[in-house]
Amino acid sequence: MKKKSGKLNRIAFIIGIFFILGLSCLSEATEKKIVWNSSGGIVEKVAQKVFAEPFEKETGIKVIFTAPVNFAKLKAMSESGNIEWDITELRPEDMIRGMQRKYLDPIDYAIVDQSDFLPGTAHSHGVPAAFYSCVIGYNTDKFPTGNHPKSWKDFWDAKRFPGPRSLPNYPWTLEIALLADGVPPEKLYPLDEKRAWASLDKIKPHVSKWWTMPAEPAQLLTDKEVYLVAAYNGRIAGIQKEGVPVAIEWNQQIFLLAYNSVVKGAKNKDGAMKFLAFMYRPELQAAWVKSIPYPGPSKSMFKYLTPELAKTLPTYPEYYKTSVHRNPEYWAQHEERLMKEWHAWMLK
C-alpha cells in the first residue's frame, strides 16, 4: 500500500513538472505578446479598447499594459539587463536622454508610416504618442471671453487683468516668461536666460501658487483661488465640462508631447514595431480622441471628427499655427542646472 502510493506520487510529481514546464513555455511565447508601459488609468482603458483589442484580433499578439511612465525604472531596467517593457511612453527630454544613454532602439520607419504625421514630429527614437499643450486658462466671470488675456504678454499684464495667478513650478516656465516679454516664438531658443529671470521677477508678486501637480491649476480655478493659470489643456477642458466658468485661450499654446519609444533589448521588438504601425492608422487615431483629449500626430484623422470635437484638440490646424514648440535637446542638456537656479530663484 505504502509502496504503491509512493509510486503514484512519483508519477503525479513528474506529470506536475511537465505541466508546469508546459505552462511556462506558453507564457514564455514572447512573440505572441508585447508589453506597453504607458500612463495607466483612463488612458490605458481607452488604449485597450481602441488599439490593443483590434491589434490582437488582426495579428494574434496580445498587448500587456504596465504603468506608470517612469524614466528611473527604465534606467534601472537597462542597467540590470532585465528588460520588461517593449514600448514605453517618455517625455521628450527623457527620450533624448534615453537615446544618448543607449536605452532605446531607433524606430523602423519602413514599418511605421510617418507620411500622415504633422511635419517634423517624428523622431528617430520615438513616435509621438500624444500631444497636449500648456495653455492660458481663465475665469470667464472675471474676464468675459473677448475681453480676456489673449497672449502670455496679457497674462503678465496685472494692470489690465488684475487678480491672482498660477504658473508651473518648473524651470520651463522660463519659456513663458520670454514669450511674455515679447520674444517671438521662433527666436525662443537658445533661451535668453537673463531676460527670462527678469521677466519672471515682474510676475512673481502676482502668482499666488506655483503648481507642481498638473491637477492643481484646475482645482485653483474651481475654488476661485486664482483667475488665471498656465495649465494643460485637458485639465481645463475637464472642469469646463463640469460647469466651472472657465475657458481656454489657444494662442501661443506651448505645444507638448509624449513619445512612444522601443526599449533596447526588448523581448519582442518586431511585435512592438508592428503595433506602433497599427496604432497610427487615422481612423484609430480618431477613435482615440473621442475619449481622450490628447491626439496623436495624424493629420487626416480630422476628416473622421465633428468640428466641435476638432476644436478641443491642440493639433486643430488653426491652433497649431500659433503654437510654440519646446526644444527637448536644450532641456535635456540644461534642465539640471536650470532646476537648481529655479529653486534658488524661488527661495529669493
Partner: peptide, 25 residues
C-alpha cells in the same frame, strides 16, 4: 508642503525626488 505651501516652502524630499525621477542624478 507642495500643495499648501508657498514658493519658499521647499522640502528636501522634493529635491531628492526630482533628482531621482526627473534628472536621474
Amino acid at each position: 508642503p507642495a500643495l499648501v505651501g508657498g514658493r519658499k516652502d521647499i522640502m528636501i524630499a522634493m529635491l531628492i525626488e526630482s533628482q531621482i525621477t526627473r534628472l536621474l542624478n
